[in-house]
């Protein structure tokens, strides 16, 4: 049903997908989109701090941000469980005060994906910010623009291509998230069983190799689509500027 809304009349089942596959696919998309949407503002802020500011402990901050990239995902998932579970250090208060729970829900999967894909996003956006000539920002300030206007009218638009590529990277990484997700929120059909988890379940099941292969093709298709979309978007960003500069 949700599939019809997503593809505008064309039902995903018309593509020959099974109900099970559609459920995993839509859940994966929901988790990845939520993960990117919520980590983007924080990611932009952290990238800006790293690209434009000097402060004490910057190297440590940078390393901490990169930690999920090098930690085994199962460690990230375990830490999430300890911190954000319903009995966790932070999760307890979130549940008591706001009724917000991450355990065994798609929100937890999105949180795990966001954490694991965060370093990739920040790296790409930071590089884009660093590529913006600070001289342009200075020029904008001499024209009377405060820091916030300089950021919104100069820094952000000029690094848009990099931000888009950071979002796509994070989106793709979220789609593929496995270890932290299964550790933190388990493998619950319809709730936390995203594409990789569904594929893992099929591989675990004897005689389900064909189903696993079908999911594999779907995963490749989505990744390709995301990359193509990002190329199209960044080309549009550049062509809006007359010629290359």
């Amino acid at each position: 049903m949700a599939g019809a809304a997503l593809t505008g009349g064309l039902r995903l089942s018309d593509l020959g997908l099974t109900e099970y596959e559609i459920s995993a696919l839509l859940l994966s998309l929901k988790v990845a989109l939520a993960s990117v949407a919520f980590s983007l503002p924080v990611g932009i802020f952290c990238a800006w701090l790293l690209a434009r500011k000097e402060f004490r402990g910057k190297a440590l901050f940078d390393s901490l941000l990169h930690l999920p990239l090098v930690l085994p995902p199962v460690v990230t998932g375990y830490l999430l469980l300890v911190a954000m579970g319903r009995q966790g250090l932070i999760g307890k208060y979130l549940y008591d005060w706001f009724g917000l729970s991450f355990s065994f829900s798609w929100r937890g999967a999105a949180l795990a994906s966001a954490l694991v894909s965060f370093p990739l996003m920040v790296r790409a956006i930071r590089q884009a910010f660093e590529a913006v000539d600070p001289g342009l920002e200075q020029a904008a300030r001499t024209l009377g623009a405060g820091r916030w206007r300089v950021f919104c009218s100069i820094t952000l638009p000029l690094s848009l291509a990099g931000i888009i590529s950071g979002m796509v990277l994070a989106f793709a990484r979220s789609l593929g998230e496995f270890g932290a997700t299964i550790t933190f929120v388990s493998n619950i059909p319809g709730e936390t069983r995203t594409l990789p988890l569904a594929m893992f379940s099929f591989i675990e099941t004897p005689g389900a190799e064909a189903q696993a292969a079908r999911l594999c093709v779907i995963a490749i298709g989505i990744a390709l689509l995301a990359l193509l979309a990002s190329q199209y978007l960044s080309r549009r960003v550049h062509s809006a500027r007359g010629t290359e500069c």
Partner: peptide, 30 residues
């Protein structure tokens, strides 16, 4: 006084026009 409050027009050696604005947008920025 902050740069943006000084109201000093500054013409840089390398012009520093904003590449994503047309000439009209550049002129109207300040």
């Amino acid at each position: 006084l902050a740069v943006e409050k000084r109201r000093t027009g500054y013409v840089f050696q390398d012009a520093r026009l904003f590449p994503h604005y047309k000439v009209r947008g550049n002129l109207n920025y300040g």
